[in-house]
Design a protein around this nucleic acid. Structure first.
Lengths: 229, 229
DNA sequence: ATAAATTTGTGTCAAAATAACACAATTAGA
DNA sequence: TCTAATTGTGTTATTTTGACACAAATTTAT
């Protein structure tokens, strides 16, 4: 038994891939060398296969561009306006991923025409991909205020000033060093590694790592990393 | 030009419809008199049509069961595990709706086998519909803590004690009357209508309505209706 | 008619969190 | 060794929260 055939349609997956270079929040876009909209900028995407779950499809597409596995990903929203794709009716399920920008396969990304853009220098994107990025950023702002997802964008070991710059980039707002430090440390999620940041030009900052146990246990607790005023 | 045909699949829309009866948060479910899973409980759903946007499909399906238009709806999440539907691979886009429980077409709902359940007495649901309801409730808890969506579940004019009972139902926790009142009034969203609640048994409570202007302007601001501890 | 019980509205106060701010320590380089 | 930049930590006033008490309104029981 099958359902009647009339409503079968194309299903795509698109992926907002975010990284952080120490100063700016960045997004990985591709310059399309294929139709439709060849030559324009878009998110990495692809069609969903009939034999894979949604998350697996998203992971596959992320891996095709970055070579990465085991990355923080979240399903964001589905886009299905009748005329969003000029070729034919296509519904796209959008995911976002947070990766350590130094950790992916640069050659692979380059071979697929992938380039990183600061959020503020993002070019115009095809279809409704611009809308997707906007919603993804909003979702990250929501989530990062309450849950420790920012760490996904940093190396294993990081300093508090690095973390602060990340939060300032996410919210596009300056934060008070002292209050930020107090707040982050009060979560109890950071472990002093005993090491210091060697490539700092002046005073070397303490390198912290995540307390994995607490991180996983407390992930769904609220943390108030930002005051959300 | 069309895309290659291999990945066209069935697209469904399912709808978590929430209401509030003054004491409990409730959900509208249907007892299926059609296959598959005839005789079991499920969310209201249907297949997406090729000529409608996702939101319109969701509105259509909500309207089929309740007769309502202009209702607060949000797209929640898409479900697409390969084997979630035993008939054939189907991806379902889940929406949730918040309605005034007294305001819908009871006859219509009854004719479709629709029944209201308290969240705590909810029967087992088909497929992954139970998961959908769980996620919808979580999303409402998140959103209602920061944005004024609770009002969507109440009549035009409502009292603060009514609103408090709603929040207590959403979070399944008792709240302090005095602190709740202070917090809600401090948002500036409530307008004293000058009327009082006639069907109260003892002291009559002030009936408030929403300040429409402020409501719309401030909707995307954070309000902290709950402290989220 | 009066008292008792229930519900509503508002006020107080101590504790906690936040925002604004200052100073000392470390390091590279002049 | 002096300067400039950056990091770590402490202080204080203000705001917000959480816990709690009392007075007013209204129905029901006596």
């Amino acid at each position: 038994m099958l359902y009647p055939p009339e409503s079968r349609i194309m299903l795509a997956i698109d992926c907002c891939i975010f990284g952080f270079d120490g100063e700016n929040l960045k997004i990985l876009l591709i310059k399309r060398n294929f139709e439709p909209e060849k030559g324009k900028w878009s998110l990495m995407g692809g069609f969903m296969r009939t034999n894979e779950d949604l998350e697996n499809g998203a992971k596959r597409i992320l891996n095709e561009l970055t070579g990465l596995d085991n990355v923080y990903m979240e399903q964001l929203f589905s886009y299905g306006n009748v005329d969003r794709d000029p070729v034919e009716r296509t519904v796209s399920i959008c995911f976002f991923a947070l990766i350590n920008i130094n950790d992916h396969d640069h050659e692979l990304a380059k071979s697929k025409n992938g380039y990183w853009f600061s959020m503020k220098e993002m070019p115009e994107l095809i279809f409704d991909h611009g809308e997707m990025v906007g919603k993804a950023l909003q979702q990250i702002q929501y989530k990062a205020a309450l849950h420790p997802i920012g760490f996904e964008l940093l190396p294993e070991k990081f300093t508090i000033p690095q973390l602060q710059k990340l939060y300032e980039a996410i919210y596009d707002t300056p934060l008070d060093r002292r209050n930020f430090s107090r707040k982050i440390l009060s979560t109890g999620l950071l472990k002093d590694t005993g090491e210091k940041n060697e490539n700092s030009s002046t005073k070397k900052a303490i390198l912290y790592s995540l307390e994995k146990d607490k991180y996983e246990k407390q992930f769904n607790a609220f943390h108030y990393f930002m005051s959300m005023k």
